Amino acid sequence: MSSTTLSRPARSRTPHRTAAALVSLVVAAGLVAAAAPAAHAAASTTCTGTATVGYSPGLTLTPQTVTLNESDSVPSCVSTDPTITGVVTGPYSYPLANASCNNVQVDPGSVLVIHWNNGRSSTVGGLTYVTTTTLGISQTIGTGTVSAGEFTGAAGILTWLFPLVNPLSCLTPGGLTGQSGTIVAEVVG
């Protein structure tokens, strides 16, 4: 399987917690699919993997500017396009102002380009994010529309899921330096 990337155009970043939830993604996908026109066959691609972030300097309870380094691996896809089997993302690096263990939010931007392993891409624009916390899990769901490339006109849904930060990690020398979670990239049209 060849490597591909999910890229984020360079731009100023604003805080939002990176996270994802498969349950919320399924609900959101169901709502999008219910609203899709029935006149043509629907495109569908769901890819899952891991998201790993590092913080430099480490997060503490005191707000500070940190550099976030993110690397995602999304090697497993199920798609109506049988040539799509995976997508690998990152790495990304950008500053976060006023970040602390109580405020670790990352806004990946309003436009993301998904590079599929088959050499094609999908530009998802107009992304808006909703972050919620349930049962010790912080999730961010970004929804937008594929504006160019494969699946143009379909809905794009990106979801990140991370466990809540353990406050004791923030009290250690050097603070919290990294986290891992789940990422899901989905196109429904």
Score class of each variant (00 low, 15 high):
Met1Gly: 07
Ser2Phe: 03
Ser3Met: 12
Thr4Leu: 07
Thr5Lys: 12
Ser12Trp: 08
Arg13Glu: 07
Thr14Pro: 03
Thr14Ser: 15
Pro15Ile: 01
Ala29Thr: 13
Gly30Ala: 07
Val32Asn: 12
Ala34Tyr: 02
Pro37Ala: 09
Ala42Asp: 05
Ser44Cys: 10
Thr46Ser: 14
Thr48Lys: 04
Gly49Lys: 10
Thr52His: 11
Ser56Leu: 12
Pro57Cys: 06
Pro63Asn: 07
Val66Cys: 04
Thr67Met: 13
Leu68Val: 13
Asn69Leu: 07
Glu70Gln: 15
Glu70Pro: 05
Ser79Phe: 00
Thr83Cys: 01
Thr89Ser: 15
Gly90Ala: 15
Pro91Trp: 11
Leu96Thr: 02
Asn98Thr: 01
Ala99Trp: 00
Asn102Cys: 12
Asn103Trp: 10
Val104Met: 13
Val106Leu: 13
Pro108Met: 11
Gly109Cys: 14
Ile114Gln: 02
Ile114Gly: 00
Trp116Gln: 00
Gly119Ile: 06
Arg120Asn: 14
Ser121Ala: 11
Leu127Cys: 03
Leu127Gly: 02
Thr132Ser: 15
Thr132Ala: 15
Thr132His: 12
Thr133Ser: 15
Ile137Leu: 14
Ser138Met: 05
Gln139Val: 02
Gly142Pro: 09
Thr143Ala: 12
Thr143Ser: 12
Ala148Ile: 04
Ile157Trp: 04
Cys170Tyr: 07
Leu171His: 02
Thr172Asn: 11
Pro173Glu: 06
Leu176Tyr: 05
Thr177Tyr: 05
Gln179Ala: 05
Ser180Phe: 01
Thr182Tyr: 07
Val187Glu: 00
